[in-house]
Each structure stands twice: as structure tokens, then as C-alpha cells.
Simulated assay, not measured.
Amino acid sequence: MAYVGRFAPSPTGPLHFGSLITAIASYCDAKANHGKWLVRIEDTDIPRIYPGSEEHILRAVDAFQLEPDAEIIFQKDRLDIYEDVIQQLRQQGLVYACQCTRKMLGSNHIYQDTCRNLGLAFEHQAIRLKVEDVEICFEDRLQGRHCSELKKDLGDFVLKRRDGIINYQLAVVVDDYLQGMTHVVRGADLLDNTERQIYLGQLLGYPRLSYMHLPLAMNDQGQKLSKQNLAQALDLTQAPQLLKQALQALHQAEVDLDAPQRMLQQAVAQWDIDRIPHTTELQGRYL
């Protein structure tokens, strides 16, 4: 099967160094396997979109001379597609309406089927997927075997929020399928989402993907780099230097400091995932 991979940032803030690591790794892995590399902006959570962040992402793709092999898509333009999938699941009796609020649920992150059998009307309610008592396992290319007993560990999970926002779990599964994705390279902070996405994909009849979850870049406080943790936006005028640092963080062979396009060609030719630390966090601290 031909390799199709992607970089799928959420525009909740400008790209930071952790995002760059994911972009570079996903690109190099796709190209080293003679595959296609796509870019998708995961912006269904419209209230959380940070002003100017989508533009910064697109400028970064250009600055690092990362060339997608198809048109960049924006999930906020595809809401009708996700609604159609929800209707498909509804017709199959695989989802139900839920009136529970976060306050009602308290600190329990495992849903206890409170609304599963109430038969509530779907309008103005959250939509949850019925999860059966099964174990889902997958072999991560870096992190090894990972398993979850969905009902016990996660419970029924939300596909659409009460405020109408499409949940990440649904949008990512649908778009990976519609874009013909075969391989997912992303940060280890998303590792625990994978079993849910595999399960939903199985219900929809989608093929299973290959996963590789990268170790995370951490800041001086031992927190992953993120907008919430005040990670610095990438200085796009320093693209060659940042590209070199990202490859060093991934423990790849050294590349010459040059135009990003030539550096990427060299990085792809030398790409070796066995050199990437098989951990969930990178050693060292980043800004």
C-alpha cells in the first residue's frame, strides 16, 4: 500500500518547536517511504482558534519549504461531512444523546452510561458513541504495544459537544479515511486517543492505520511545549537553524546548514526511525 502521511496542527496558537518536530518527522517518514505528505488544519473547535495562528501555520509550512502533495484542507469547512457520519452512526444505533455537563460528571473521566438508555432527543445535546466491552491493541512503531479496555478505561465518548462543536476524535478519523491516510506520525500526548480512534474507525468500516507517536519536547518546568505552557512561536526567519535543531532533537544524522529544501532532502536520505528515542519525552529542555 502506498504511504500517505500528514501533519495536522490545531490553530490554538502559533506553531512552536514541538510542532516543528512533528512536522519534520511526519514529512521525512513519508518521503523516505516514497509516500505523499499532506497538511490538514484541525480547526473544528472554533472558539479555541487563536487569532492569526492559522496564518502562522501556513507561513511556517512555506518558510521550512515543506511542500504538501495535495491542497491543504480546513476541518471547519467540512462540518457537513462529520454531521453525515453522525447520522450514519445514529441510524445504526451506535450513538445516543447525552445531557450530562462537566459539573454533573465531576472529576470522573470514565463515563458511567448515565444517559445511554434514556432515549433523549438529539437536539441541543451532546452525542456519545456507545463503547462495547472490548480490548483494542495496536503496535506503535516507536512506543511498542499499547492496549486499552475501552469500556473500563474510557467509557462512552463524545463525538459532538452540546454547543455543536464536532469532537476531535470524530473529525480526525473521518478525515484520515477520506484523505486516504495510511500512516500517522504525531506526538506521544495523543497516544491514549488512538484506541478510541481505532474503535470508531472499525465501526465505520475504515482500514486500520499505522501509528508512530513521537517523544515530546519539554520546557524547563518539565511540561510539554504548548500554547497553554507559553511555548515560544517559531521564528520563521531562523528556519534553517530550527530545522537543524529539530533533526538533532530526533537524534537524526547531521545535515548541512543550507536552504531548508536542501536540508530536507538530506534529512530524508538519512532518515532512520531507529535513532529516535523510544520514549514519550525527549531529553533536554526546549523553549
Score class of each variant (00 low, 15 high):
Leu209Arg: 01
Arg141Leu: 07
Ala171His: 01
Leu287Thr: 08
Ala188Arg: 00
His278Val: 06
Lys244Thr: 05
Leu216Asp: 05
Asp77Cys: 13
His183Thr: 12
Gln252His: 02
Glu281Ala: 02
Gly5Arg: 05
Pro207Leu: 14
Glu67Leu: 14
Leu89Arg: 03
Cys115Val: 13
Leu257Lys: 02
Gly13Glu: 09
Leu250Thr: 02
Ala217Phe: 04
Arg116Cys: 11
Thr101Val: 13
Ser10Thr: 05
Arg48Pro: 10
Leu282Trp: 06
Ala23Pro: 01
Leu150Ile: 06
Met104Tyr: 08
Asp153Thr: 05
Pro68Cys: 11
Cys147Ala: 06
Tyr50Glu: 15
Ala246His: 05
Ser226Thr: 12
Ile49Met: 07
Thr12Lys: 05
Tyr211Lys: 03
His146Val: 14
Gln112Cys: 11
Ile165Lys: 08
Arg90Lys: 12
Gln169Trp: 09
Arg116Leu: 09
Gln238Cys: 10
Pro9Gly: 08
Ala63Trp: 04
Pro68Val: 12
His124Met: 12
Phe138Trp: 00
Arg186Lys: 11
Leu38His: 07
Gln92Glu: 13
Gly144Lys: 08
Gln197Val: 04
Glu149Thr: 14
Tyr286Met: 01
Leu118Pro: 10
Asp256Gly: 09
Gly201Val: 06
Glu149Phe: 09
Val131Met: 11
Pro240Trp: 08
Leu94Phe: 10
Leu58Cys: 08
Arg59Asp: 10
Ala25Asn: 05
Leu209Asp: 04
His251Val: 13
Ala267Ile: 10
Leu234Asn: 01
Phe157Arg: 02
Leu230Ser: 14
Gln65Thr: 06
Gly187Met: 00
Arg162Lys: 14
Asp192Lys: 04
Ile46Ala: 06
Leu38Glu: 07
Gln143Asp: 09
Pro68Arg: 04
Ala121Leu: 03
Lys227Val: 10
Phe7Cys: 00
Arg59Glu: 11
Asp175Lys: 10
Ala121Gln: 01
Lys31Phe: 04
Asp69Ser: 11
Thr279Arg: 00
Ala121Ser: 06
Cys98Trp: 08
Leu94Ser: 12
His124Ser: 10
Leu247Asn: 01
Trp37Leu: 15
Lys103Phe: 15
Gln202Phe: 01
Met1Gly: 09
Thr237Tyr: 03
Asp156Met: 03
Gln221Asn: 13
Ile46Val: 09
Arg285Tyr: 08
Arg285Gly: 00
Leu242Tyr: 01
Tyr50Leu: 13
Arg161Asp: 12
Asp176Ile: 05
Ala70Lys: 07
Ala233Glu: 13
Leu243Asn: 08
Arg78Ala: 00
Arg102Glu: 04
Gln143Asn: 12
Ala63Phe: 03
Leu236Tyr: 03
Val134Arg: 15
His56Thr: 15
Leu250Gln: 03
Asp29Val: 00
Asp43Asn: 01
Cys100Pro: 04
Arg141Ile: 07
Arg161Phe: 12
Arg78His: 10
Phe7Ala: 01
Ala239Tyr: 08
Gly52Trp: 05
Asp220Trp: 11
Glu55Met: 15
Gln92Asp: 11
Gly187Ile: 01
Leu216Gly: 02
Pro51Glu: 12
Pro47Asp: 07
Asp69Met: 04
Arg6Leu: 13
Tyr206Gly: 07
Lys76Asp: 10
Asp80Arg: 07
Leu129Asp: 14
Pro277Phe: 05
His124Leu: 09
Ile46Arg: 02
Arg90Trp: 11
Ala70Leu: 10
